[in-house]
């Protein structure tokens, strides 16, 4: 009796400990977000008098307004607004084009292999592993040559090219699990290359399309490297603008505006993550665990 009682007591203690640890980790991840939100809602003097965790006495969205409309990002002082739209204009076509190309590549690489198709895939896959620093200088030259330097279309092109390796990998790994017999059945039914793709393969691809678009959306929206190098002035994406806003050294440091700006820059990807993150993680982890 005593013995089983002790075991149960140990069990309860053990469970309590596990939940305590999990809670502590949750706080670790949540506190920075909390700090960002609280800071963005405080007036500057409250920031100076309080501390990171103190709640705002007089919550105000003033900093948000400034960040959106009038904060200085270098020479201009029009807030992040324009850059937010820039990012949208850049991310949507880049994401769609690279996903569609990736789907077509994956289809050919699994269902219509030809001598040499695997060589193309291996060559492309290198793009998943290289540090992009090795292509920055030649790319700058090419963008200049085709007249896309410093522009959003140029950035779209860069993101499509260097996202293609990833989207192709996603779709290839997904399509490899679709039995070849399905394609054979369609061929016997008389379906052509494209009919099979659009009528049979694409309707089956929803999960991987979700993964690919979310991945590309987050990668491209969050990109800073290509943005800071290949865009300029009014054509910059929001990450670059945010960094400029935070590091603009004129006048007093407005931490509340910085935080509001950071949240604005993070909102789209956070939104996507909360809405569809489940599929995202499932897809991302599937390939790497098998290895």
């Amino acid at each position: 009796m005593l013995n089983s009682g002790t075991i149960r007591w140990n069990h309860v203690l053990g469970r309590a400990f596990i939940y305590l640890m999990l809670g502590a980790f949750a706080l670790y991840y949540l506190i920075p977000l909390f700090v960002m939100v609280v800071t963005s809602l405080k007036p500057l003097d409250e920031i100076r008098s309080g501390n990171l965790l103190s709640l705002p006495m007089q919550p105000t969205f003033e900093a948000w307004g400034i960040a959106w409309n009038s904060a200085c990002t270098g020479v201009q002082c029009n807030g992040l607004q324009g850059y937010f739209y820039n990012s949208m204009i850049m991310v949507i076509p880049a994401m769609l084009i690279s996903t569609l190309l990736g789907a077509m590549n994956g289809y050919v690489l699994t269902k219509w292999k030809f001598p040499g198709s695997n060589v193309v895939f291996s060559m492309l896959l290198v793009g998943c592993f290289i540090p992009f620093q090795v292509i920055l200088l030649p790319m700058a030259k090419v963008l200049g040559m085709v007249g896309l330097a410093g522009s959003l279309p140029g950035l779209v092109m860069v993101h499509v090219i260097y996202g293609l390796a990833f989207t192709t990998l996603f779709f290839r790994n997904y399509y490899i699990t679709i039995p070849d017999e399905l394609i054979n059945a369609a061929r016997i039914d008389g379906a052509s290359f494209w009919t099979t793709f659009f009528k049979i393969i694409l309707p089956l691809s929803t999960p991987i399309i979700v993964v690919s678009t979310i991945w590309q959306f987050t990668q491209i929206w969050n990109d800073f490297l290509f943005g800071v190098i290949y865009s300029s002035g009014e054509q910059q994406p929001i990450t670059v603008a945010l960094n400029n806003l935070v590091n603009t050294s004129t006048g007093v440091k407005r931490y509340n505006v910085d935080m509001a700006g950071a949240i604005i820059a993070a909102l789209p990807t956070l939104f996507v993550y909360v809405v569809a993150g489940k599929y995202f993680v499932r897809g991302l982890t599937a390939g790497s665990v098998k290895g």
């Binding site: 501390n51 990171l52 969050n222 990450t239 950071a262 820059a265 993070a266 996507v272 909360v274 993150g277």
Partner: peptide, 27 residues
């Protein structure tokens, strides 16, 4: 799991900006 994972959705620029403020020596 959602809580542990959300930082991955953020840009490193956002993360850097937030921690720059948190680790700020004065405030």
């Amino acid at each position: 799991r959602t809580i542990y994972l959300y930082p991955m959705a953020l840009s490193f620029i956002v993360t850097g900006t937030a921690w720059k403020w948190i680790l700020n020596p004065g405030l």
